[in-house]
């Protein structure tokens, strides 16, 4: 009889074991804290849900076509907000992206500052920025544009800096060795390498911004969100159904188009 035995397992270092144990305990502690801390009024939620169910759900799937005109106008405004915001961000992110890229600035300090600025911007949810801009420029679509522009700059800048860090520096070095100055090296060595990916990321961010701008109206920053909050306050769920349908269609179509364009570019 042949006995089969598995190959011996790799020895794990005790340090790793301890580390794993600590992480495991921390996770358990977090869960204990969560389930002790959270209090959900189950009875009320279930009671509300049973009494509301037939008033909400069937109406969502029965959109109010009379509202289609107003919805399409607002969704157009949403697209404009997203477009103007993404466009601004695509440009604002360029200097920040270069600043944050390690291979573009000599000192590590500059790129660290750039990275810090970008992650600080990313920590603000779009809608919080929208709140700030609504107070600043009033409750209109332009507040939405500014919120999207600043919010997208954080992510686009980070992606841009990664693109710049991944370029082939030998081309740039060869140019500098041949006597090109900084500007020439930038224009003929760096920019041709980064343009397709920059564009692709900007378009990708536009997809995200369409979703983001559709909710900004909740805090008054224009677009379809304004209608969402009115429909919810009036309990007009069939209008909400129409809005949801419009959002789903627009987002799907734009995702499709942008995926097509991006495949062509890169």
């Amino acid at each position: 009889m042949v006995t089969y035995s598995l190959p011996p397992k790799k020895e794990k270092s005790p340090f790793k074991k301890i580390k794993k144990g600590i992480i495991f305990l921390a996770v358990i502690a977090v869960y204990v804290w969560t389930f002790i801390g959270i209090d959900i009024d189950w009875a009320r939620a279930i009671e509300r849900a049973t009494s509301n169910f037939h008033r909400v759900i069937p109406k969502l799937f029965n959109p109010d076509w009379a509202a289609a005109g107003e919805v399409s106008e607002k969704i157009l405004e949403t697209i404009f907000i997203a477009f103007a915001g993404s466009f601004m961000a695509a440009i604002l992110a360029i200097p920040l992206g270069f600043l944050a890229a390690k291979n573009m600035s000599r000192g590590r300090l500059l790129s660290a500052i750039g990275k810090w600025i970008l992650s600080a911007i990313r920590a603000f949810p779009d809608i919080i920025l929208a709140i700030l801009f609504v107070v600043a420029v009033g409750p209109n679509a332009f507040a939405g544009v500014l919120a999207i522009a600043i919010g997208s700059t954080g992510m686009l800048g980070k992606l841009y800096s990664e693109v710049v860090e991944s370029i082939d520096m030998q081309v740039v070095e060869a140019m500098e060795a041949n006597g090109a100055n900084k500007i020439q090296a930038l224009f003929y060595g760096v920019i041709p390498q980064i343009i397709p990916e920059f564009l692709s990321y900007a378009i990708y961010r536009f997809e995200i911004d369409i979703r983001a701008s559709s909710i900004l109206g909740i805090v008054g920053a224009g677009g379809i969100g304004t209608m969402i909050i009115f429909a919810a306050n009036n309990r007009n769920w069939s209008e909400m159904g129409m809005i949801l349908l419009a959002i789903i269609i627009v987002v799907t179509v734009i995702d499709f188009i942008s995926a097509r364009i991006r495949r062509k570019i890169v």
Partner: peptide
């Protein structure tokens, strides 16, 4: 995935009432 999180929240608040659950 096309429906933004806050829109979902609006709908569920309508369904379950205000609170953590929705």
């Amino acid at each position: 995935r096309t429906i933004p999180d806050l829109v979902l929240a609006v709908v569920f608040v309508g369904l379950f009432g205000i609170g953590l659950f929705p």
